[in-house]
């Protein structure tokens, strides 16, 4: 009797699970139209401004209407000029990001690996972090010249600190209880790092890399302000000197798209590594 009842309870549980599973999948597949709400405000403002300029309520010389911004973007794209600038900027960010991220990961791992190493490294790095990175610019120019090397160095410095802090912090905050599981199974130091520490820090490492990439895009602008003949930052400076606000806004839009694209790509590439995580963070 009881056996019957429990087996019935089991099967009804499984039945419920079977019913719940497809509805969950459907939910994921169905497009959430409320996402479009977010577009409403900027589009409304853009249309209002466009109308105001069209009907002569505003001049639109300093704040050009959307149509003129897109015209500027279009003409830049048509001549191929835009792509040269985009590629130059992307190359700088990517190179600086790789250098900054790799050194950040190495130093973060060193500093997280042991108390002694951390006491040795961390104070110096924290002190360096207190220096506003832009303050390095004159020195980098003296050391590395005004061309690519000094720009990449500035971006690398900008990327380094969030990655270093993120990795070191992630290693320090790994759950001691999980590390003990490794001890119980007598893992060597190397195996412990590989089988427990590495997977445990991956989610925070991805977040650190993302904020590093964000800073990379911030610093590429600063780097391109300091005398460049190519790049989206150059378009900004050029637009200011030539009095072309539409070009400035076009470059800003290009920056926004590029930054978002690079971030999404990073999330996509690292997703298989952190699939096991609860999905709350993926929406960030």
């Amino acid at each position: 009797m009881t056996g019957n009842a429990t087996s019935h309870a089991w099967s009804s549980q499984q039945g419920a699970a079977a019913l719940a599973a497809p509805s969950l999948a459907e939910k994921r597949r169905a497009f959430d139209w409320r996402i479009l709400l977010g577009f409403l405000l900027p589009i409304a403002v853009a249309l209002l401004w466009e109308a105001a300029v069209r009907f002569g309520l505003a001049q639109g010389r300093l704040v050009p209407p959307p149509s003129r911004i897109f015209a500027a973007l279009w003409s830049l794209a048509e001549t191929g000029e835009l792509w040269t600038h985009v590629w130059t900027t992307l190359w700088r960010v990517l190179t600086g990001f790789i250098i900054g991220a790799v050194t950040g990961i190495v130093f973060g791992a060193l500093s997280g690996s042991g108390e002694t190493v951390r006491r040795l490294l961390d104070p110096t790095l924290q002190a360096l972090r207190a220096i506003p990175s832009i303050a390095w610019v004159p020195l980098f120019i003296l050391w590395l010249g005004i061309f690519e090397a000094s720009k990449v160095a500035l971006i690398a410095v900008g990327v380094f600190f969030p990655v270093y802090l993120g990795i070191a912090g992630a290693i320090l905050s790994v759950d001691r209880k999980l590390v003990e599981v490794g001890h119980v199974f007598r893992l060597s130091r190397f195996k412990l790092a590989k089988r427990i520490l590495l997977p445990a820090v991956l989610p925070e490492a991805v977040i650190a890399l993302r904020s590093g990439l964000g800073l990379g895009f911030m610093f590429v602008v600063a780097a391109e302000f300091m005398g460049a003949s190519e790049g989206l930052g150059y378009l900004l400076v050029d637009g200011q000197q030539m009095g072309k606000p539409d070009q400035i806004l076009a470059a800003i839009i290009a920056f926004a798209l590029l930054g978002k694209l690079a971030d999404s790509l990073l999330v996509l590439l690292t997703k298989p590594l952190v699939r096991w995580q609860d999905t709350v963070r993926e929406r960030l």
Partner: peptide
């Protein structure tokens, strides 16, 4: 003196490794 292969322990909390499947967790040792 120290963890021994013939001694196993189950803690108060499950302490499963969240990045491993159920199968991989059991196979951990």
């Amino acid at each position: 003196s120290g963890p021994h292969p013939s001694v196993g322990i189950v803690f108060q909390e499950p302490r499963l490794l969240p990045w491993l499947s159920v199968f991989e967790n059991i196979a951990f040792g």
